[in-house]
Structures are given as C-alpha cells and as structure tokens.
Amino acid sequence: MAGMEQYPVLRAKNLGIQFGGLKAVDNFNLEIGESELVGLIGPNGAGKTTVFNLLTGVYKPTEGSFYLNGQRMNGRRTHQIVEAGIARTFQNIRLFKKMTVIDNVKAAMNRELMYQLPQAILRTPSYWREEARITERARELLRIVHLEGKEEYEADNLPYGEQRRLEIARALATDMKLLLLDEPAAGMNPTETEELLDIIHFIRNRFKISVLLIEHDMSLVMRICGRIQVLDFGTTIASGTPEEIANHPKVIEAYLGRDEDDGGEGQEHGRDGNQEYREVGKDA
C-alpha cells in the first residue's frame, strides 16, 4: 500500500549485554532485508553466539533494542520470539532424539493446530483432517531438506549431516521470517556441505526468508553470503562484501594477530588457530 513504511526484517540498534563487568556484546548494529543472507563471523569468543542468544530471548539485552519487521522484540520470551518469526539452529544439535523424524517437524507446528484437546482425545473427524494436513506439510519440508523416506526413523539414528538438515526442517515448520543458522556445516564432509549450501539457497528463495549465518567454514561464508559482519571481543570491526572482508586489515589482524615487532603485519598469533581465516582469500 502506497505510503506504508517499509521495515527491514531485522534491525538491531546499539544492542549489547554485560555480564558483571564484562561487555560480551557492545553497540551491535545490523539490518537485514527480505531474502538477504548475511554472515556473522569472528574469532572464537568474539560474541557471535551471544548475539544469537540476544535475538532469540535466551539473554535479555542490557542495552539497545532489536526489531522484527518493525516490531520491538525486547522483553519477549523465547517462544514469543519464535511465534513472531525468528527461528534458529544450534552449534550442538538439539533434536527430540527418541522421536521420529516427522514428529520432530510436527512438534514445531503445535501453535498452528486447528483442533482442541477434546477433539484430540475423541479422535473426531476434524482432528484427523488437521493431522493429515500437518503431516503432509511436514513431509514437504522433509523433501526440501532431502530427508524423504526417513520420516519414521528415530532422529538419533540419522547420520550427523542429516540431523543438521532435520534441524533446518524443524525451523522451517515455525513459518519464520528470519532464520539464524549457528555453524550449520560444523562436522560435515565436503559433499554434505555442498548439499547444505544448495538447501540454504533453495529455502531462502522459495520461502523469501532472511538468513543470518554463523559459520567457521570460510569458503562457504564467502560463497553464500552477500554481506558479512565481523565481531571481535564483542564489537563490530568490519562490515561489507566478501571481497571487502577478505582484505580488511582489522579482520586479518583479528584472525591472525599482530606481531608488535613487524610493523603490524598479520602473523600467526590469533586466538583460535587461524586456519579458518586462511580460507577467506581463496574464493574472494
């Protein structure tokens, strides 16, 4: 409608949190538009997962605010933020491991069920119609992440890479507007990583969702993200295209460290091994 203000899907404004005397995240600002895929990177301990915890209500910000499509999210509980449209995956997979694959996906659809408890107890026709509807939708999501045919497996029996994809299907089942992916390629082999990359592209384009990605596989980040923001010790040190980030001196210093006797050239004195950063320039 003409004249209506257009909001970014996510807007974080001066967002921060302090634990005692330590500022884990300070003055974090980020805007993500519709269908945009943004990477959030930085050395270990930079504050990336803390940002995700702020955006999902696990932590309450001690300063600043964040908005989803113009609606302020501060103070909302995690389930309320999920209902508003923010979903996430985790570094450590968190599935209902003894439930079936399809039931893991259906569990994320509880809030949209169209029947009441008495109908479920009595197994009325409306109950069965609704069960059929959500079962078919769950099957469709499992097809999208290439898990068709495994609907009745226990989640715990899936290979690691397939468990990662099941987490994504479960997140999709919440009808989110913003998907936060926390190291989705961790532990995957190159073939699984390529398949994951294709799935992320597909769901972004099909569902018009926005994605904020934390990932240590820099070749994946550089290939999939249109824009990258870099954290170090809880503060943003750079933001730009993959090419700009790959050659940014502050980013190189954050990952590779600085030798005070060499005039500031990057050396291998970073905090976390730095092999991941050597991958940055390969595809940039």
Score class of each variant (00 low, 15 high):
Arg170Cys: 00
Glu154Leu: 14
Ile121Phe: 15
Arg170Leu: 00
Leu122His: 06
Met176Lys: 04
Ile134Leu: 01
Arg139Lys: 15
Arg123Ile: 07
Ala173Gln: 00
Pro184Asp: 11
Thr135Arg: 04
Glu167Ile: 13
Leu158His: 14
Trp128Phe: 15
Gly161Phe: 12
Ile144Glu: 03
Asp175Gly: 06
Asp175Tyr: 07
Glu152Arg: 13
Ile121Arg: 03
Asp175Phe: 07
Tyr153Asp: 04
Leu180Lys: 03
Leu178Thr: 06
Tyr127Gly: 06
Pro184Ile: 10
Glu152Asp: 15
Arg165Cys: 09
Ile144Tyr: 04
Arg165Ile: 00
Leu158Glu: 06
Tyr160Gly: 07
Leu181Thr: 10
Arg137Gly: 02
Leu172Ala: 09
Gly149Asn: 05
Ala132Gly: 09
Glu136Gly: 00
Thr174Tyr: 08
Tyr127Ser: 08
Pro159Tyr: 11
Arg170Ile: 02
Ala185Val: 06
Ala173Lys: 01
Val145Ser: 11
Glu167Thr: 11
Met176Cys: 15
Leu172Thr: 14
Gly161Lys: 05
Val145Cys: 12
Asp156Ile: 12
Ile168Arg: 04
Glu152Phe: 09
Ser126Pro: 01
Glu154Gly: 05
Tyr153Glu: 08
Leu158Phe: 11
Leu166Cys: 08
Pro184His: 10
Val145Glu: 08
Glu152Pro: 00
Gln163Val: 10
Arg164Ser: 03
Leu179Phe: 06
Tyr153Cys: 12
Tyr127Pro: 03
Arg123Ala: 15
Gly187Met: 03
Leu178His: 05
Glu151Arg: 06
Tyr127Cys: 09
Glu148Arg: 12
Leu172Trp: 05
Pro159Asp: 14
Lys177Arg: 07
Ile168Tyr: 04
Ala169Val: 12
Leu181Tyr: 08
Arg139Trp: 03
Ala155Lys: 02
Glu148Thr: 02
Lys177Cys: 08
Arg165Gly: 02
Met176Asp: 03
Glu152His: 14
Arg143Trp: 00
Ala171Tyr: 11
Leu141His: 06
Ala132Trp: 05
Asp156Phe: 11
Leu180Tyr: 11
Tyr160Phe: 15
Ile144Gly: 04
Ala173Met: 03
Lys177Ser: 13
Glu162Ile: 03
Ile134Asp: 01
Pro184Cys: 12
His146Asn: 15
Asn157Val: 05
Arg143Thr: 02
Ser126Met: 05
Tyr127Glu: 09
Thr124Ile: 14
Lys150His: 14
Ile134Phe: 01
Leu158Trp: 13
Leu158Lys: 14
Tyr127Ile: 07
Asp175Ser: 14
Met188Asp: 04
Arg143Gln: 04
Asn157Phe: 11
Gln163Met: 12
Leu180Thr: 05
Leu180Gln: 06
Glu167Asn: 10
Gly187Gln: 03
Arg133Asp: 01
Ala173Phe: 00
Leu147Cys: 13
Ala186Glu: 03
Arg129Thr: 02
Gly161Ala: 15
Ile134Ala: 02
Leu172Gly: 08
